[in-house]
Design a protein around this nucleic acid. Sequence first.
RNA 1: GCCUCCAUGGUCAAGCGGUUAAGACGUCGCCCUCUCACGGCGAAAACAGGGGUUCGAGUCCCCUUGGAGGUGCCA
Length: 481
Amino acid sequence: MVRTRFAPSPTGYLHLGGLRTALYTYLYARKNKGTFILRIEDTDQEREVPGAVQKIYDSLRQAGLSYDEGPDVGGDYGPYIQTQRRDLYPKYAEELIEKGGAYYCFCTKERLDEARAAAEARGETYKYDKHCLHLPKDEVERRIAAGEPHVIRQNVPLTGMAGFDDALYGRVEVECKTLDDNVLIKGDGLPTYNFANVVDDHTMRITHVMRGTEYLSSAPKYTLLYEAFGWEVPTYVHLPVVMRDATRKLSKRYGDPSFEDLLDMGYLRDAIINFIALLGWSPRSEREFFSLSELEQAFDLEGLNKAPSIFDMTKLTWFNSEYIKKLDPSAFLGMATPWFDQALAGKNIDYTRLSALLQSRTEVLNQIPEMVVFFAEMPAFDVELYTHKKMKTDPAVALEALTKMRPVLDGIPDWSEEAIHDALMAAIEREGMKNGQVLWPLRIAISGKASTPGGAIEIAFLLGKAETMKRLGRSVAQLKG
RNA sequence: GCCUCCAUGGUCAAGCGGUUAAGACGUCGCCCUCUCACGGCGAAAACAGGGGUUCGAGUCCCCUUGGAGGUGCCA
């Protein structure tokens, strides 16, 4: 039975690298009919950000990554928040001490800092000197009883190798002598990640530990812990980082968006998931569109890439535009409406028609207001906009065309697209002009923009007869200068 | 510095000893067209470098270079 877990620290929003780790972890569980667990790693009380835990719940829910066990859903292996498991860790630490895998340490911060500074001054990697390893048991007990501050450290062997087999990276080994005796239980009684991840993964019966490569080089140390306990080591799957460019990883500091930010901008959940899934994983086929449930079927470890990948906003945007195009028109209308309102509130515009015009032109929802504001207010524009080589128009041609079309448009009784189209086409033929020589200037005259969603006819229709005639009148006046 | 890991076009990425080295995004060109999009067609664009192993190497090994991660009483 596969049991996987996503174990974030509540230090802020859910960034995209975290989302991808969560996604793969979730997918692996689903693919194997296993259990997906959420665990909150909040042992660093100082870094905890208020509200961050709730944010994690919300983001995972919005992403569609439902967990079978977790703080807010329960489960048989709880609690799922580490600070609520605090009484558990010292017990295991004691056991580890009994087995020789750990020891109490009373060294002061000052002594440690000095030693570290000295090592660095010598150009060496600092390592704790096991100063407290051989303290007699009675002395240890006496000092603890006396309330002396202390931690518990891992007792790493001085010789030999430590290693593990990663499902993605293969065998990873290091010499024990390069490893430090890290703190397992801190002065505040809470465990460090080094200890908590081992105890929790074991007690929660996690079979596959999927996490970022920042843990790759410390994983051998965790294996030592499992071995000291006599526990079975889970399967490790370390996942490469998501980068913003070749040398820096995605981060809020540089303005990289979080999952929430993307959603707020008007990126669709399914598009984000689809894109993220393919960032570091390949189905090894030409297929590129996957829904979450399709990913649950298709995902496997074999398709994982070992190299870090760069988050390409442009490709995400393409995915988004594709997802928008596939939307049912009424669904798109529903999504677009709040964005229409931003630019067109109070205006009498046919949103249904407008959204039909916009659907194939919208890449991200937040582009909508700027694409449609001209319906609300006619922008000022330069008459040179009338010049278009291919359409064979310029301000002079435009003036002639507009002057001739004004009465034609004014004479249309029922303002429908069909009526406008027919009237205009008939007039164009009668005058012996080219479509472009009339329609281009007309579109400019009533929109003031070089490019618009839809042509002159659609825009005239959406604007309504009164507004169209009003704008036309002003534009003709402008041309007469 | 030391330890670990990684390396195919600008980006994602297929390839798992024998290929004209896929595909997608982006870019550029053409077509469609009342603009812009959409859609269609096409083009440019990559195995970091050097040594091995092999009849044969993008694929295996080593070195170099470049990059990432770790080196915390952070995770």
